[in-house]
C-alpha cells in the first residue's frame, strides 16, 4: 500500500463485506482477538520481503480493508512456516489467515504461479517436493 494513501474507515465496511465473510469462513479465525502486539511480525522470517508484515495484514482486516490486505504481496511471500501462529499470545492462527487470503484470490480464478510459464530449465532443476508444495499453495 502506498505510504500516504488515505484509509477511509466505516463500520459498514467491516460489517458487510463478502470477501471478509469468506475469510472468516475459510480461516475460522477471529481476527478481532489480535491486539497488535507485533509478535507475529517480529518472528516472521519473510516479513522483510512483504509489503505489509503479518500484524499489519491483520489490522487491515480488522478495519474491513480486505482489498488492501489482498493487494499486498504478503500472503504470496508467506511460506506457511507457522512461526507466527506459535508466537501469537492471543491464539490467532495467522498462517490460516494468510491461507484464506490466498484462497480467496485463487478461487476468483487467478493462479499466482503460472505453471505453463515456468521454463523447462527451472522445472528440471527443482525437486518435486518444491513443485508440488508450490502449486498446492499458489494454484487451484
Amino acid at each position: 500500500m502506498p505510504k500516504n494513501k488515505k484509509i477511509v474507515l466505516s463500520s459498514a465496511k467491516v460489517r458487510s463485506n463478502e470477501d471478509l465473510d469468506k475469510l472468516k469462513e475459510i480461516s475460522e479465525e477471529n481476527i478481532f482477538s489480535c491486539y497488535q502486539c507485533g509478535n507475529c511480525s517480529a518472528g516472521c522470517p519473510a516479513a522483510e520481503f512483504m509489503d505489509e508484515p503479518p500484524h499489519k495484514i491483520i489490522r487491515l482486516l480488522q478495519l474491513g480493508l480486505i482489498k488492501e490486505a489482498m493487494y499486498a504481496n504478503s500472503s504470496w511471500i508467506c511460506a506457511a512456516c507457522i512461526y507466527c501462529t506459535v508466537e501469537c499470545p492471543r491464539g490467532v492462527d495467522i498462517a490460516k489467515v494468510m491461507e484464506a487470503l490466498r484462497q480467496i484470490a485463487l478461487r476468483k480464478g487467478v493462479n499466482h504461479v503460472n505453471i505453463d510459464k515456468l521454463s523447462e530449465k527451472i522445472l528440471e532443476k527443482l525437486p518435486q517436493i518444491a513443485l508440488i508444495s508450490n502449486f498446492r499453495k499458489f494454484t487451484l
Partner: peptide
C-alpha cells in the same frame, strides 16, 4: 535452528530463499 528456509518459495521467489 527453527527459522524457515523459505520452503516452496524456491520455485517462484528464489531470491527470498537465497537470502534466508
Amino acid at each position: 535452528k527453527k527459522r524457515c528456509c523459505g520452503s516452496y518459495l524456491t520455485v517462484n521467489n528464489k531470491d527470498v530463499v537465497v537470502d534466508l
